[in-house]
């Protein structure tokens, strides 16, 4: 069998619609027999932060950051028309009516299909998250840095920055 094509996606944004688009492309890539890696960095880390419990972090500033930016897939908002959550709620409802998977379902689907989910260690520090697998949902397979992203990206036919 021919060598698999690669798709590498850097997810910098934690906006709901961008997160959805990233996962839509990831699962489609996996369906097209591509090897898919997703790197979560800066606000993108919010997508894969654990939904439950308090975030462990050291130091006052990091603790404050985590309180103000708790993150987790259930707390993602639309970049526009959020309207104190009403817009986001409406969009989620419309998606449900259209049988579209939620972000949680997409994350599980991606994992099932062999998409590699990676959290960026460096930006964990900036975002006040302790760089351990424990900070993230179980689907996140590893933590890595910029060199790993670039080494994946240079092997990829398609690299996206979302």
């Amino acid at each position: 069998m021919a060598k698999k094509e690669k798709l590498t996606i850097a997810v910098l944004s934690g906006d709901l619609e961008r997160a959805l688009a990233a996962f839509m492309l990831a699962v489609t890539g996996a369906s097209m027999d591509m090897e898919v890696s997703m790197f979560f960095t800066f606000w993108g880390l919010n997508i894969v932060k654990k939904n439950e419990g308090t975030m462990k972090s050291k130091g006052l500033m990091k603790k404050m950051l985590n309180m103000m930016n708790r993150g987790g897939s259930k707390r993602l908002k639309l970049s526009r028309f959020n309207m104190l959550g009403l817009g986001t709620w409406m969009m989620k409802d419309l998606m449900k009516q259209a049988n579209m998977p939620s972000i949680d379902e997409y994350i599980a689907m991606a994992k099932d299909m062999g998409v590699e989910l990676i959290a960026c260690t460096t930006t964990c520090g900036v975002m006040g998250i302790s760089p351990e697998k424990d900070s993230f949902r179980s689907e996140v397979g590893s933590l890595a840095g910029a060199a790993y992203f670039l080494s994946e990206a240079r092997k990829s036919g398609v690299t996206l920055f979302i």
């Binding site: 839509m24 492309l25 699962v27 489609t28 996996a30 369906s31 097209m32 027999d33 259209a98 049988n99 579209m100 998977p101 689907m109 299909m113």
Partner: peptide, 13 residues
């Protein structure tokens, strides 16, 4: 009743 990309994901499976 299913929208892109779900049909593709289902076909691939």
């Amino acid at each position: 009743g299913l929208y892109c990309p779900i049909p593709i994901v289902k076909i691939a499976t």
